[in-house]
Design a protein around this nucleic acid. Structure first.
Lengths: 203, 203
DNA sequence: TGTTTTTTGTATCGTTTCGCACAAAATTGT
DNA sequence: ACAATTTTGTGCGAAACGATACAAAAAACA
């Protein structure tokens, strides 16, 4: 059990829950994209007025970075569950894509938060680009470990290159993220995932 | 030879070339994304002042739509060349990805124009979403035709589903578009493409 | 009770945004 | 030379933008 350190702070108590506020801000960025999300909209969504937003998270880019970090932490946990659970490689990848589509289609056709709301900004804002890239590459790394295991277990040919294969599997998730935001149906996206799994694991 | 219809219009002649101006506007949208590209920046890039921009293309969204249409026309021509030239399926797909990476990496890590600058806006602007989706799906359709040919020629198993396989091949191009904008190297992206081709055509 | 500390909420700053009005400029037709 | 037509360029205006100053409010401490 983690101790809930509550040192009884001195001043006026906060009227908001930082985690809940960050979740609401994420929703706003996710829907509009980084550039089109105004501080007015973020303020309305979080229920915090502008100065409180600045006090809690800093300026607009810092708030977006915090939202991306929070999203990536959730993605990391989801990936560990999908790839870490026992079972064949095929079962792991099936859980992997199913978990991704759950996020991408939950509450409307939004796709991946990092890609959908940060990619446009990536070409002009290196800090945002690096955070988005780090999120993508963490999935690459996790898949590489899982595919290396599969190769060592004989589920993949010994000649297979786990790193590049991982980037192909991860890349297909990127494609699902793009297409989910473009309104493709769950069935269409699931078919893409299933075919990819067949190609990687053997039909 | 197409006749150059020049009916000698009445008023003051245009100081700009519409095609060149649209190309410059495309560059600006491509770099900044739709939302972050200001009319000031577009005006500076095209060399046209604001009223001329409005007179020629309409408002910001109409200009972006025109830019997307122009990009898609080029993409269509490039795809026809890549997939239509004689050769094996493997050769076609190799040309296909090479042509894509040429566009995505030319002049900096920009990725696909439609995805990189329009995807963020897709969730809130259905017109833009539809145009981006149409561009993606046109590639899907072209690849479906090519893969159907390949299956009929015996290059793919008779049980293969050309439509879904096409969406996997096309999806990998989407992944390359995302990752090119995130700064991945040409070599990394080429390896992803090569591995995908191996998976589809057989190693 | 009063001081200290922290957050809230109002109000606003200066800038940038998009879109358009209007007159000057440049061409063709008469 | 003069009228008609089209585009240009200056410049403006209302709204939205990101960011902050400042006082009132709400808590703990003395």
């Amino acid at each position: 059990m983690v101790q809930k350190t509550e040192p009884k702070k001195r001043g006026r108590p906060r009227a908001y829950d930082p985690e809940a506020a960050l979740a609401k801000a994420t929703e706003t960025f996710w829907e509009s994209g980084y550039a089109a999300a105004s501080l007015d909209a973020l303020s309305a969504a979080t229920g915090m007025n502008r100065p409180s937003l600045y006090g809690a998270f800093g300026d607009k880019q810092a708030l977006f970075q915090a939202a991306m970090q929070r999203y990536q932490a959730q993605a990391r946990a989801t990936m560990r569950t999908a790839l870490g659970a026992p079972g064949t490689l095929r079962e792991s990848l099936t859980r992997f894509y199913a978990a991704g589509l759950e996020v991408y289609l939950d509450g409307g056709p939004r796709g991946c938060f990092l890609i959908g709301s940060g990619l446009s900004q990536a070409a002009v804002d290196p800090a945002i680009r690096d955070t988005v890239a780090a999120g993508v590459h963490e999935l690459d790394a996790g898949l590489t470990r899982r595919l290396t295991m599969a190769r060592d277990a004989g589920e993949l040919p010994a000649s297979a290159d786990p790193a590049t294969l991982a980037r192909v599997v991860s890349g297909m998730l990127n494609a699902l993220a793009v297409r989910a935001r473009l309104g493709e149906s769950r069935a269409e996206l699931e078919a893409m995932a299933a075919t990819t799994i067949d190609l990687v694991c053997g039909a």
